[in-house]
Design a protein around this nucleic acid. Sequence first.
DNA 1: GGCAAGGAATGTGCATACACCTTCGCCACG
DNA 2: CGTGGCGAAGGTGTATGCACATTCCTTGCC
Lengths: 229, 229
Amino acid sequence: MTRPKRPLVRSGTTVEEMARALADEIVRGTLAPGTKLGEGGLGERFGVSRTPVREALGHLSAMGLVERPPNRRAMVAPITDRRLTEMFEAMGELEASCARLAAARMTAGERNALDALHQGARALVRAGAQEAYEAANSRFHGLLYEGCHSGYLRDLVVATRNRVSPFRRAQFRLPGRLEKSWDEHDAIVRAILRGDSEAAAQAVRAHLFTVSAASAAFVTDRHAPPPKE
Amino acid sequence: MTRPKRPLVRSGTTVEEMARALADEIVRGTLAPGTKLGEGGLGERFGVSRTPVREALGHLSAMGLVERPPNRRAMVAPITDRRLTEMFEAMGELEASCARLAAARMTAGERNALDALHQGARALVRAGAQEAYEAANSRFHGLLYEGCHSGYLRDLVVATRNRVSPFRRAQFRLPGRLEKSWDEHDAIVRAILRGDSEAAAQAVRAHLFTVSAASAAFVTDRHAPPPKE
DNA sequence: GGCAAGGAATGTGCATACACCTTCGCCACG
DNA sequence: CGTGGCGAAGGTGTATGCACATTCCTTGCC
């Protein structure tokens, strides 16, 4: 007997919990790309055996967050600059598709919620509340994903978002980024409220293009210093 | 003892092989949606223990081909009509994005290849060569995916294509479908050759809309008679 | 005769054991 | 001093055992 004491709550949440924890750390940048993830080490850390660890790694691998070469240790997926650019680009296309569909399909309630959130965020911009704006921004995009009324499309865009999020996080630190973001959101909201699908798609593409550009600065830095939270 | 004799070729292909075999059967309809897949049974069938079976089921689950409720047997994912519609729709959006980028980025060589393939397919339409046209159609769309010069976007669209392919296969049997398909392709090719991104995207959307509609007839049938290859 | 409680039967979740693969350091040899 | 091979150490792939969950069928009770 070695293992301390796992409650043995057979609710089937163990693996998911581990996968979430690891995904969070990868997405947050705590686990840098290229970090080796030995099954034994992870098992010890979470107090479980290798079997559920393998399952969790399988999930992360399916999400594209880790690579799992045969007979070798898994590692946090290293992303080339090219790949990252592609992911941002795909992100833009997917969100643009969401916006186009959302402009045509959102219910009145959904439109109101989107507008309310957006108008409320103006105060956060004025206050320079970076953290709060970031959260509002997240919800804003989430409403877009839901607004397209396509679960499959939403899943695709959320998956992509998760994969680029480590590189996206710090963009709001750039001076004037909050204001610019809000203005771009404004164009999106206006287009959606008036039901102009193409304009909405175009506005989203423009928005994500600047997000991509703003994030690029941090991407190039990511090699030299180890990400310090 | 018990287990006959697995070559013990540790090439890491065992799990992938099982996953592929099962995925094929699901995609072909041999395994009907809702079919229960017990780990023990599959293990016996493939001559392996439950451990690799679980891994394979994990892959299939990640691909969305099977569902795996906790503490219960896995089952072939039942696809609702709604979900399938969403997948076709997303397919259209993704391919439209590919086309827009392709119109702007394809090299002269790629444009020529696309046009050559397309012009060559005209003869297949006239001859009513369904099988051959189907293959050409596949290559045509493949060239679009490559033409966008984004590996990530290509991966997304290919994954989606694989998931809808079982329902897409039979569309060309509809009378006049070949001609219509070729005409739609023609609009796409023209737009791309003249570098008109928006027109290309629009043409692809229109094309996939009719593909979706043409496939829908077979979808509704899929419940009653078992698909006979 | 219907219904609910209980208990095999079946199946999954996790731990552990073992075989194989990969890697890395050490040492002999050129 | 560099280089190639060899052996041990560490890591993954798979098998198997056991604890718990679910399911279904039986059986006692009304």
